[in-house]
Each structure stands twice: as C-alpha cells, then as structure tokens.
C-alpha cells in the first residue's frame, strides 16, 4: 500500500474529437497518477472508454460516449502522485557496445568505461509507449545526462539497441529507423514484444526497469 500524499493536480481537459479528451496534466508525475486513476476507474466499471493512451505529460481518453461529463468530473478526482512502490522491477541484461558510446561518454563527461555504470545505476520507469509496439519511453535520467538526438537519424537501427535521447532511454524492439544515441545492446530483444504473452509488451506504462551490464 502506498502511503503517499493525495493531491489534486490541475488537470486540463482538452477536446480530442467528438468522442475523445486529451487530459493535459502539466507534469509527468501528474500524468502517471492520472493514468493510474483512469485505469482503476475503467477496471471498476466507473469509466467506459475504448482507449487510454498515456503521453509524456498527458493522457488521451478515446472512445467515450459523453466526453463533457468526464471533463466535468475530472477536477474532482483524488490523484495519488507517489509512484507505486509495489510491482516488480524488470531487469534487462545489456552489453554496453553501442556505436554512440564514445559520443555519449563525451557529452556526459565520463570515461567510456563508466557509461555502463552510470546508465545501469539508475532505476527507470516506463512513462509511456509509442513509436513501435513494445517500445517504452523510460524515464529517470537526471537533467545532466540528457543528450540531444543524432543530427542524422539512422535508416536502420538493429533490434535490441539501447538508446538515449532527451529525458529518456529506451530499447528498440525491432529494426527500424531511429535518431537516438545508441549505447548498448539487449541480449534478448525478443522479450520486449510477444503477442502470445499477456501483456504482449514487457515494458507497459508504470513498469520499473533496471539495466544490468553483461560481458559477451
């Protein structure tokens, strides 16, 4: 049980079509709290919606019959902004061998050999998914470790590539174009997405994540 404070963040409901609402929560923490609250309401039957899609600082509620009623209720919902302490932490074994390792080390101001310790020393949380099924935007990098995207995106990034850009780190579930800085490779990227597993994605919003350095 979380004993965190209960706050009422300022939620701004914005219209997203005849059947949708985009809730602008202002901050990432508020967006996570709002998403958890909406999920709970949906599971207990208090909210009927086709889709709940968390973003960086928003939650989209799509496929609702009367969005104006939801918009009117929202400001009165209690939200708990403390992260859920329960729930296991997913460990992702990776080999720190990415092609942008040296560039990232330089931007972080650490020796190349220390990138593994720095990146694997942080506990992340899957803030939201996007880009490709199984891709989660993992949050937790402190301000000083934020790096820009590459100036020239790669046309093909191999599956399992571990990358950093802005406030996020993430792992590419399948080969795709990509502009993030590649620092490592996940040893078994097949774990990220498995349609025959429930849930299909290993990293669903709210999952806590740690990387573990392995040597090949």
């Amino acid at each position: 049980m979380s004993t965190g404070r209960t706050t009422a963040p300022r939620l701004r409901p914005l219209p997203a079509g005849p059947r949708g609402i985009l809730i602008d929560c202002g901050t990432t923490a508020a967006a996570r709290a709002c998403y958890r609250s909406l999920q709970n309401r949906r599971m207990s039957g208090l909210l009927e919606a086709e889709a709940l899609v968390p973003g960086a600082t928003t939650v989209l509620v799509d496929g609702v019959d009367e969005p104006e009623l939801l918009a009117a209720e929202l400001p009165h919902w209690p939200m708990n902004e403390e992260p859920e302490a329960s729930g296991e932490c997913v460990e992702i074994p990776v080999c720190y061998d990415g092609p942008d390792l040296e560039a990232v080390a330089a931007m972080w101001g650490v020796p190349v050999d220390d990138v593994a310790d720095v990146h694997s020393g942080i506990e992340y949380e899957a803030a939201f998914c996007g880009f490709s099924p199984g891709f989660a935007y993992l949050e937790g990098l402190p301000e000083r470790l934020r790096v820009p995207r590459r100036e020239n995106p790669r046309t093909a990034v191999p599956a399992g590539s571990v990358a950093v850009a802005g406030p996020y780190t993430g792992v590419y579930p399948r080969s795709s174009p990509g502009g993030w800085q590649l620092i490592a490779t996940m040893t078994n990227p097949g774990r990220l997405w498995n349609e025959h597993r429930e849930p299909a994605a290993l990293l669903v919003p709210g999952t806590r994540v740690r990387f573990a350095a392995v040597r090949v």
Binding site: A16, T58, L60
Partner: peptide
C-alpha cells in the same frame, strides 16, 4: 510538444 496520444481522426 512533448509526445502525446493521438485520437482516431486527428
């Protein structure tokens, strides 16, 4: 704009 959910028909 920080990444946000896209409703159908956007």
């Amino acid at each position: 704009l920080p990444s946000e959910g896209i409703a159908s028909g956007s």
